[in-house]
Amino acid sequence: PIADLLRGVVGLAVGGFIVATGVRYVIGGSGGDIRIPGVQRVTSWLAARVHRYVNSPSIVGLGAVHAFLPCPMLYPAYLFAFASGSPTTGGIALGALGIGTIPAVFLYGTIIQSVDVAHRRRVHRLLGVVFVMLGYVLLAHGLMALGVHLPHPMFPHYQPLGSAMGH
C-alpha cells in the first residue's frame, strides 16, 4: 500500500508537471517559462561564474563537466520509469529515451533551428500536444495507484501501476 501511494503521488506530480509544460507549449510559450522556486537564483549565480569561460579554451572543459550534469528532461523520465511499477518497463522507457535523444537533438539543432519562427512554433505546439497526452497517461496511472480508474491509451510494453504487484 505504501508503494502504491508513493507511485500514485509521483505519477500525479510528474504527470501534472508534464501536462503543464505541454499546455505552455500549446498556448505558444515554452517549457522553460515554467518557474521552479529557487532554481532561477541558482542558475543566475552559476551563469555569472561560468560566463568567463565561454570565450576561452576552457569552454571544452566546461562542456565536459556539463555532460555529467543531469538534464531536466531526465528527472521526469526517471520518475516515469519509477511510476511504471516495473523495472523492465522503466528500463525500456529509459533506454528508448537514450537511443532517441541523439537523433532528436541533432535534428532539432539542425533542421528546426533553420526553419522560420512560424513553423518552429507549430512544431512546439505539436510537441505540447504530445506532452499533454503523455502527461495524462502518467496522471491516469497515478490515479490508478490510488484506486481511481480513468480511460487512457496503453503504450506497448507499458505495464499499468499495480499490475507488477498482482493488482
Rank of each mutant, 00 (worst) to 15 (best):
G128Q: 01
S114F: 01
A104T: 13
V137A: 06
G16H: 06
F155G: 10
G63T: 02
V65K: 03
A67E: 03
V10C: 12
P87H: 01
V137G: 04
P57Y: 04
G109I: 00
V23P: 03
Y78G: 13
V54W: 11
G85D: 00
L62Y: 08
V39P: 02
M133Y: 05
M154S: 15
M133T: 11
G91I: 05
S84G: 04
P156I: 05
V129S: 04
A96S: 07
L97F: 15
I18T: 15
L146M: 12
A93P: 02
V19S: 09
A64E: 09
Y53Q: 10
T101D: 02
P153D: 00
S44K: 12
T89V: 04
L6T: 12
G8W: 04
L161A: 14
G8M: 11
H124S: 11
F68A: 13
I111Y: 03
M73N: 09
R24D: 08
V132I: 10
H157M: 14
G11I: 13
T110Q: 10
A164C: 03
G147N: 01
P156V: 09
Y78Q: 06
L46Q: 05
L138G: 09
A13I: 14
Q159H: 12
A145Y: 07
A164V: 02
A20N: 04
S58I: 03
L12G: 03
V50G: 05
V54H: 10
P72W: 08
I102Y: 08
G63I: 00
A81D: 04
I36Y: 04
A3K: 13
G11D: 05
I92Y: 10
P87R: 02
G109D: 03
P156T: 03
R120S: 01
G162S: 01
V105P: 03
Y78N: 07
Y136W: 15
R121Q: 14
M144E: 14
